[in-house]
């Protein structure tokens, strides 16, 4: 059944997609999870999510990616879903400078509601619209460096860098989690620290071998 785990995985990571309305969050998600794109996809009401598994080293990493409504009015609702996220793609539209200006607010929002170890990637989407570009790669890169986030430009339409962006975030989360696991082995006193990476449902310390019902 679709809602029962019929496959095994080693890690389940919750990742959120945030950013202004109309920057292409839902299309990044559908491109990554179903290899689909639609120019006329409807605005997201509330939240939705989809999953996909990838391999990192010899492990199976399942990503549960949450797509949220972009309008400010819905932030009180959508921010509730940040809980337990270990990764975030903060998306702006390279053709609309205002969406880049708002990145700072989104970043604050994210840091207010999530764990400090969350892996964040700044994503400049719609990079295929070269003639309409309003945000330079350099500016965005400089911002990402300053804020200590990863950075990538993507095109959900051309399927450019979408795979890379998600894979990079998931790999980085995996590194953090496995490093944590090592820390715990080295120093039993650091055990509570290991709990800061909260993956999957609210009670889990880590996602190792978690079998949840929404994993398919």
């Amino acid at each position: 059944m679709a809602y029962r785990a019929d496959e095994d995985y080693d890690y389940l990571f919750k990742v959120v997609l945030i950013g202004d309305s109309g920057v292409g969050k839902s299309n990044l998600l559908s491109r990554f999870t179903r290899n689909e794109f639609s120019l006329e996809s409807k605005s997201t009401i509330g939240v939705e999510f989809a999953t996909r598994s990838i391999h990192v080293d010899d492990k199976v990493v399942k990503a549960q990616i949450w797509d949220t409504a972009g309008q400010e009015r819905y932030r009180a609702i959508t921010s509730a879903y940040y809980r337990g996220a270990v990764g975030a793609l903060l998306v702006y539209d390279v053709t609309r400078h205002v969406t880049f200006e708002n990145v700072e607010r989104w970043l604050k929002e994210l840091r207010d509601h999530t764990d400090m170890n969350i892996v964040i990637m700044l994503v400049g989407n719609k990079a295929d619209l070269r003639h309409l570009r309003a945000v330079t790669t350099e500016d965005a890169k400089a911002f990402a460096e300053r804020e200590n986030t990863f950075f990538m430009e993507t095109s959900a339409l051309e399927a450019m860098n979408v795979e890379n962006a998600f894979t990079e975030v998931l790999t980085q989360i995996y590194r953090v989690v496995s490093r944590k696991a090592l820390d715990i082995c080295d120093d039993p006193a650091a055990l509570p620290k290991g709990q800061t990476i909260n993956v999957g449902s609210k009670d889990d310390v880590s996602a190792v071998k978690k079998v949840g019902c929404c994993s398919a």
Binding site: M1, Y3, R4, V47, E48, F49, Q64, S201, G212, C213, C214
Partner: peptide, 11 residues
């Protein structure tokens, strides 16, 4: 299927 919140939302 003992759906939890996430599962229910997706369903």
């Amino acid at each position: 299927e003992q759906m939890d919140f996430d599962c229910l939302l997706k369903f």
